[in-house]
C-alpha cells in the first residue's frame, strides 16, 4: 500500500511512508490476543489428549468403548453406563425442548403481535440467563418431589434421570425457541403470501409452508440444543444420581459423564492416578461429541442462510 505514495511531498518526507513502531507493536498485540483463542483450543486438545493417552495405555480403547461396567475400584472402565445416562437425560430434555421450543417459536414468529413478542422474548432470555445450578436445585427440591407425589415414591427415586432430563429441557428451551424463531422469521414473506393466495389457513401456512422452508434452521437449533444437553453438568450432578449404572429406566438414578467428572474431581483425587486420567478420557469423549454436534449445526445453519440471503 505504501508503494502508491510518493517518496516526498512538498520537499518533506511522506508521512504515509514513515515507519511507525507503535502501530506495529499494537498490531502484534492485537494479533496475539486473537491467537489466544487458538492456544485455548490447542490447550484443550493437548491436555485431554495426553491424559487420555496415559489412560488408554493402561485400560485400552476397546474395553473403554466396549464394557458395560464402570467400577474404577475393581478396574472396570467401560464408558457405556455414563454415556447411556447422558443419552437418557438428553433424550428427555429434547423430548421437552423440541416440541415446546418449536411451538413457542411458531407462536412468536407467526401468531404473536409485536407487543406480545417484545414482552415475551425478554422473559425467555431471563430463563436462559439463570445459572444451571439453580435449575439443579429446582430439579432436586421441587420437580422430583412433585413427580414422586404424582407417580408414587416406589416408582420414582429421589435421584432419577427423568426429572433431571425434564428440567434440562426447560433449560435448553429458550435456546431452541430463539434459534427456531430466527429460522422461521427468515423465511421470505412471499412464500407465506403465495400460500394465503391459494386459500391456505394460517395453520397450514405455518406448518406446511414456513416450517418446511425453515427446516434446516430448525434442525440446527435442535442439534445445538442436544449438544448443550450432552454437556450440561450441574442439573445432572444434583438430580440424576451419583454412581454409574447402566439402566434404561428413567426413574432410577444413573450418573452421566459430566456428573461423574464433577463428583470425582470435587472429592480428594490424587493426580497421576488412573482415576484422575479416566476423567480426561470421559472429557475427551464429551468434547468430541459436542464438537461434532456444534460443527454439524453450524454447517446446516450456513446452508440455510445461503438459501434465503
Amino acid at each position: 500500500m505504501t508503494g502508491n505514495f510518493p517518496e516526498e511531498t512538498n520537499g518533506r518526507p511522506s508521512l504515509a511512508r514513515r515507519a511507525r513502531p507503535f502501530e506495529a507493536a499494537i498490531r502484534g498485540l492485537l494479533f496475539v490476543s486473537a491467537a489466544i483463542s487458538v492456544l485455548t483450543t490447542i490447550g484443550i486438545v493437548l491436555t485431554l489428549g495426553t491424559e487420555s493417552w496415559g489412560f488408554f495405555r493402561e485400560v485400552g480403547v476397546l474395553e473403554f468403548l466396549g464394557s458395560l461396567e464402570w467400577q474404577p475400584v475393581i478396574g472396570d472402565f467401560g464408558i457405556w453406563p455414563l454415556f447411556n445416562a447422558t443419552l437418557t437425560t438428553s433424550f428427555y430434555a429434547m423430548l421437552v425442548a423440541l416440541p415446546v421450543g418449536l411451538m413457542v417459536a411458531i407462536y412468536l414468529a407467526e401468531y404473536a403481535s409485536d407487543r406480545v413478542r417484545e414482552t415475551l422474548k425478554p422473559v425467555l432470555e431471563v430463563l436462559a440467563g439463570i445459572p444451571t445450578v439453580v435449575y439443579g436445585y429446582f430439579a432436586l427440591a421441587t420437580v422430583t418431589p412433585f413427580l414422586r407425589s404424582l407417580l408414587g415414591t416406589e416408582l420414582v427415586g429421589v435421584y432419577n434421570t427423568f426429572s433431571a432430563g425434564l428440567v434440562m429441557g426447560i433449560l435448553i428451551l429458550p435456546l431452541v425457541s430463539s434459534m427456531c424463531e430466527d429460522a422461521l422469521s427468515a423465511v421470505p414473506r412471499s412464500l407465506r403470501e403465495g400460500a394465503y393466495a391459494m386459500g391456505a389457513t394460517k395453520l397450514e401456512v405455518a406448518t406446511q409452508v414456513v416450517v418446511p422452508a425453515a427446516f434446516s434452521g430448525l434442525a440446527a437449533a435442535f442439534i445445538l440444543g442436544l449438544s448443550r444437553a450432552v454437556g450440561e453438568t450441574m442439573i445432572v450432578a444434583l438430580a440424576a444420581g451419583a454412581g454409574p449404572k447402566f439402566t434404561l429406566n428413567p426413574f432410577e438414578p444413573a450418573e452421566t459423564m459430566t456428573g461423574h467428572i464433577v463428583r470425582i474431581s470435587g472429592g480428594d483425587i490424587s493426580y497421576d492416578s488412573i482415576d484422575y486420567r479416566s476423567l480426561f478420557a470421559i472429557a475427551l469423549v464429551l468434547f468430541l461429541v459436542t464438537l461434532a454436534l456444534n460443527i454439524l449445526s453450524r454447517r446446516i445453519v450456513a446452508k440455510h442462510w445461503e438459501v434465503y440471503e
Binding site: V38, T41, I44, V230, L279, F280, L286, T290, L291
Partner: peptide, 30 residues
C-alpha cells in the same frame, strides 16, 4: 489463518463449561 481463528472462536463458544474446568485443572492448577 484469520478464517481459522474465527471458526475456532465459534467452536470454543460451544465447548461445555466442564471441559474448561479440566483445562484449568491441567494448566492453571497443575
Amino acid at each position: 489463518w484469520n478464517r481459522f481463528i474465527r471458526v475456532n472462536i465459534y467452536n470454543l463458544a460451544g465447548v461445555p463449561s466442564i471441559i474448561y474446568g479440566m483445562l484449568g485443572l491441567a494448566i492453571f492448577v497443575r
